[in-house]
């Protein structure tokens, strides 16, 4: 049964690689929600998910004929997503640099007693600090901490050795603590 499903998936992939719109639609439907979730976790911004999902799949369909079927499609899509999100962070940083920054201090508390407001404030602080990290550190941290991937999974998805993922995640945590006004010693 599982083998039959796998054969179906491969048949859909081959058809999509040939440019069959029905197969491309099927691929999109199968992976859309995963990609959307990854984008939201990487950016913390639900409002840009639709735009980036679209960009990811347009790029994916453009590159699909060159996709080697010995690789995993979800890993391949993850890397495209990482690149698109990296561009988004670049654009966001450029925009903020050009303007007076709205954020005066990322660790400044906001008097919002509701749980929802606290969660929103947490998200705002975390993603503002994540935006200050170098791309590679942010991507490793997001994969490990927010996507909750194991070292091995993050290594496969990001295409770097396990030890590099570990190093980048650790450095990211150190910098985040500094940016958020947390004592880095408590992380040791």
């Amino acid at each position: 049964m599982a083998r039959a499903r796998e054969a179906d998936a491969i048949a859909v992939l081959i058809a999509a690689q040939r440019g069959d719109p029905a197969a491309q639609s099927a691929l999109f439907s199968a992976h859309r929600d995963d990609v959307a979730r990854q984008i939201q976790r990487m950016t913390g911004d639900a409002s840009i998910v639709d735009d980036l999902v679209q960009e990811v799949f347009i790029s994916a369909f453009s590159a699909l004929p060159g996709f080697r079927r010995d690789a995993r499609l979800d890993t391949w899509l993850y890397r495209i997503t990482v690149n698109k999100v990296r561009n988004w962070w670049d654009a966001k940083r450029r925009r903020l640099r050009r303007e007076d920054r709205v954020a005066t201090s990322p660790s400044e508390p906001v008097a919002t007693p509701e749980d929802q407001a606290t969660t929103t404030e947490h998200l705002g602080r975390l993603y503002a600090a994540l935006g200050e990290l170098p791309d590679k550190y942010r991507e490793a941290f997001t994969a490990r901490a927010i996507d909750n991937l194991s070292l091995q999974e993050a290594s496969e998805r990001l295409g770097v050795p396990v030890s590099t993922v570990s190093y980048r995640t650790r450095k990211a945590e150190e910098r985040l603590c500094t940016l958020l006004g947390l004592d880095p010693e408590e992380a040791r």
């Binding site: 491309q24 639609s25 999109f28 439907s29 859309r32 929600d33 959307a36 979730r37 984008i39 939201q40 976790r41 913390g44 639900a46 998910v49 639709d50 999902v53 679209q54 969660t119 947490h122 998200l123 602080r125 975390l126 993603y127 941290f141 490990r144 901490a145 927010i146 909750n148 995640t169 945590e173 985040l176 603590c177 958020l180 947390l182 880095p184 408590e186 992380a187 040791r188």
Partner: peptide
């Protein structure tokens, strides 16, 4: 992945984000 308790709280909020309602169609 995260050792600092303060950072863990922020990461927990990020993990618990509601799945986005994707509008874009094939």
């Amino acid at each position: 992945a995260v050792r600092h308790p303060g950072l863990q709280a922020l990461v927990k909020a990020a993990r618990m984000q509601q799945p986005p309602a994707v509008q874009v169609r094939a």
